[in-house]
């Protein structure tokens, strides 16, 4: 309710743990009252709105390895939880090997917000509109987590459970996201349809990644991820399958886009209506897939 918005941040205790183990323990001991935070760009807004009322904010920046942005030509890219989006955008490794990730980051809000915003924060926030989620999904991101029983890894693909809901358990902290080496010669595209030219949240977001693949009958493999059109970020497998198994033509792309549009379940909200969103999933999927295809050939 609009009447609940606070003029400033309501009271809470700021906690800065010395290491990940301490952070996990504290969070596990206060499952309902403590929250980890990184840039705070979502948490602070939700606290002012009265949606979140944590008693403790646990600052997990600066903890073991969370500031690391590292590329290894054998294993891939690791983006630490505290690495802000501007750093990702400016990274020569990201620009060289994962330009789609930089493109997605660059579409988020404003430069000064991206000084604070992080990819891991964007993932943990689990908004269906999260701009970087699509790129993380199509690159096959793997989450590095730290919980009460120590570190572990989870694929991003099963992470989202609903708007704002993830598989994270009390005490879990995402320390980084890792991406394997992308397929050779792959091309990506993120199309974000916002109300403004830049800076807005997406009404619809379409992420496409494609590469040539002689193991499938069409000779191409595509991944498509959709934002703001379902309770969770969507990566419709039927699109991937269809484009792998049918000769790549404009008609095939139209059909794949139709499948994408069918796979989503958009709602009417202040940003846009369901009917429009479904249409846009189709049109923008055609656009993104076609653009990727053209660059591949």
């Amino acid at each position: 309710m609009i009447l609940d918005t606070h003029p400033a941040l309501p009271e809470f205790e700021y906690i800065r743990p010395a290491n990940l183990a301490e952070a996990s323990d504290f969070l596990a001991q206060h499952p309902d009252t403590a929250r980890p935070f990184l840039g705070g760009t979502d948490v602070f807004v939700r606290m002012r709105d009265g949606f979140m009322k944590p008693e403790f904010l646990v600052d997990v920046k600066n903890l073991d390895g969370t500031n690391e942005l590292r590329f290894d030509s054998r294993t891939g890219l690791t983006v630490g939880a505290a690495v802000n989006m501007n750093r990702v955008i400016a990274s020569p490794d990201v620009q060289a090997h994962y330009p789609l990730l930089a493109e997605a980051c660059r579409s988020v809000a404003s430069y000064q917000l991206r000084t604070r915003a992080t990819i891991v924060g964007n993932l943990c926030n689990a908004s269906p509109a999260g701009d970087t989620i699509g790129a993380c999904l199509v690159f096959g991101g793997v989450l590095h987590l730290h919980g009460v029983s120590g570190p572990r890894q989870e694929p991003l693909s099963g992470f989202f459970r609903g708007p704002g809901k993830t598989t994270l358990k009390p005490g879990d902290i995402v320390t980084a996201i890792h991406f394997p080496i992308p397929p050779n010669g792959c091309v990506g595209k993120y199309i974000k349809l916002g109300r403004n030219q830049l800076s807005d949240l997406s009404i619809v977001g379409v992420t496409a990644l494609g590469h040539k693949d002689s193991t499938c009958s069409s000779g191409y493999r595509f991944r498509l991820a959709l934002a703001s059109v379902a309770p969770v970020p969507l990566m419709p497998a039927e699109v991937e399958t269809y484009l792998a198994n049918n000769p790549l033509t404009p008609d095939a792309i139209n059909e794949a886009a139709r499948l994408a549009s069918q796979a989503c379940s958009p709602i009417d909200d202040v940003r846009g209506g369901a009917r429009y969103r479904r249409q846009m999933v189709r049109n923008l999927s055609v656009k993104a897939l076609t653009e990727v295809w053209k660059k591949l050939d």
Partner: peptide, 10 residues
């Protein structure tokens, strides 16, 4: 040296 929204930083 980097711009931030100072309302979004503790």
């Amino acid at each position: 040296g980097e711009p931030v929204n100072s309302c979004m930083v503790l």
